[in-house]
Amino acid sequence: MGRVNFKIWRGDATGEFKEYATEITEGLVVLDAVHQIQAESANDLACRWNCKAGKCGSCGAEVNGHPRLMCMTRMNDVLAETPPGAAVTIRPMQAFKPMRDLVVDVSWNFEAKKKIKPFKPRKPDAADGTWRMAQTDVDRVQEFRKCIECFLCQNVCHVLRDHRKHDEFIGPRLLVYAAALEMHPLDVEDRTTDLKDAHGIGYCNITKCCTKVCPEHITITDNAIIPLKERVVDKHYDPVGSLWRWFHSPEKPSDGAVK
């Protein structure tokens, strides 16, 4: 494949693209190219990575404008889409505050996660003090638990990226997290009110951009967000249904309020 030209973002928000070239051989991924450049000509080029196998979610960046994991993006695919003579561009995820080069400030995701009510299991119900769960019930949430927290979905969601609603909307990653908790076979917490109010699920207008970029192929919108929206609607906008549920609920809330 030979020597390939790259344009890589250097610096913070006020930075610029700088040009580099490095030798690309068979099988290399974008992260290898960045590492080569780092070792050869830009020792101080900042990027995050850990596993190099698509498992830790550290290395998200925008390669030729597409949000991707650099470690799982092969150079031959990238070159195939790059116009002849043009350089491969790599820039940091755009929805977050740039820190340096390819590293962005993702701390908001960690803060926002803390505001979601944690897992709360029902009492152990098996004789040995543990639980029995059916594989089918487990399977339902496994998809969400595959999330590697790469935040690529957060990066493309227009509510965050363009409208900067970070204070009002938790974004697709954290909706996936909420779905994993809500649909956990043991969980008894109720997060629907929070989802509606604090977490801003209403902002999502199901554009599905998040689903398209998820490297774990989680069907974020159809499997996580839409069912959560249904729960919210169910509990909050359907007085008849709520009343019915209240009369039929095995454990009525003691204060008589419709939860």
Binding site: F119, P121, P124, G129, T130, W131, R132, M133, A134, Q135, V138, V141, Q142, R145, L181, H184, P185, L186, D187
Partner: peptide
């Protein structure tokens, strides 16, 4: 392992749910 399960870990199950 059971403690981890009580914190939310979901392991694959046997036929009888263990």
């Amino acid at each position: 392992v059971h403690e981890l399960e009580s914190w939310g870990a979901l392991f694959d199950r046997t036929h009888d749910g263990r």
